[in-house]
Amino acid sequence: MFEHTENINNEEYIPETYIPTAVSHGTKELWQVFWILLGITVVDFIIYFAMGASMTRNIIFILMGLVKAFFIVGTFMHLKFERQFMILMIVLPALAFIGMLVFGLLHEGNALSIDY
């Protein structure tokens, strides 16, 4: 992980203009992800009409949203093919700060309730 195995004769490294050589992974996986996203949306749609509004249903919807986010960020935004450091640099701050906001909402949200 800390060492590189690459051809050092390839090119000189200039930070401002360095462009890594792009590699195509083919279109098969992209279409797969498209059908997964479509499928999850259809399941969302069915659950919406099949189940009455409840906290369980809300949690199912949020989890399905996170699954969709995983596929969009991983495959469409190409993140899962990047270096491990790159993945951590994007995912960890996002999890930390958004997690902090969500925790604050769940933990302190009661304080916002209007008293009747």
Binding site: E3, Y18, E82
Partner: peptide, 16 residues
Amino acid sequence: VTNTTPTWAGGRSPFN
């Protein structure tokens, strides 16, 4: 050629 320079020692793009 295996280059054993550490990723963060400069002279390369650590995130590629």
